[in-house]
């Protein structure tokens, strides 16, 4: 199977280039296996990967133009030549490895933890099954970055717009019955860029390998803001 991969080595000082590889594939191989085979041929080729089963979120790449997790993308689904590039819009460190600092910075901005104003109770804080259900579709995010790096609003304003991943996380804590800073969380997002730079393009929904829906989560935050303002 023919592969064309993005190569960049900061030590050489050369511009990024595309390099072709011919890899022998077997039934059931995932894109990650293909990248490992390329690495066997050329050990200077760099990409991130770890769990190999779509849980750790390390091996997000742009393959044939779409952001996907290499470990759960079957090679049989891809058209030849398989063109693999790093995530769009992020500074490239080497080959497919990009600098995700800005992405993590935006995640941190939304205070991704539960905040209690009252003293902590002796036992766990109970939730009704209905309250727990509200977290479904929000908590499963593995932070691979496929969504935010597929979002045009994030491409043009990565410093000011939080991006779909961070906003999905913000919705997860706004929806949590145990969190006691819902109003503050929403106040913090009330800004022309942080939340409202989302233009409902929905590339994020297309890109998410866990089938989550950041657009719906953003809509949920907007609806909560509207409800609390009237």
């Amino acid at each position: 199977m023919k592969f064309t991969v993005y190569r960049y080595n900061p030590e050489t000082g050369h511009e990024p280039r595309m390099q072709d590889f011919e890899i022998e594939v077997e039934r059931g191989m995932m894109l990650r296996d293909g990248l490992i085979a390329i690495q066997d041929e050329d050990e200077s080729f760099a990409f991130r990967h770890s769990c190999g089963e779509g849980v750790c979120g390390s091996d997000g790449v742009n393959v044939n133009g779409s952001n996907r997790l290499a470990c759960i993308t079957p090679l049989s689904e891809l058209r030849e030549p398989v063109v693999v590039r790093p995530f769009p819009g992020r500074p490239v460190i080497r080959d497919l490895v990009v600098d995700m600092s800005q992405f993590y910075k935006q995640y941190k901005q939304v205070d991704p933890w539960l905040v209690r104003r009252e003293p902590m109770p002796e036992q766990e804080i109970l939730q009704s099954p209905q309250e727990r259900d509200r977290l479904d579709g929000l908590y499963e995010c593995i932070m691979c970055g496929c969504c935010s790096t597929a979002c045009p609003s994030f491409w043009w304003n990565p410093e000011k717009f939080y991006g779909p991943q961070a906003l999905l996380t913000a919705a997860r804590f706004i929806a949590d019955s145990r969190d006691q800073t819902t109003a503050q969380r929403m106040d913090a997002l009330d800004d022309p860029f942080k939340l409202f730079r989302c233009h409902t393009i929905m590339n994020c929904v297309d890109a998410c390998p866990k089938n989550l829906n950041p657009t719906k989560a953003i809509g949920f935050i907007k609806a909560q803001m509207l409800k609390s303002s009237i």
Partner: peptide, 9 residues
């Protein structure tokens, strides 16, 4: 050399 601006795809 290492201080050059990283490329962006």
């Amino acid at each position: 050399m290492a201080l050059q601006k990283p490329p962006v795809f």
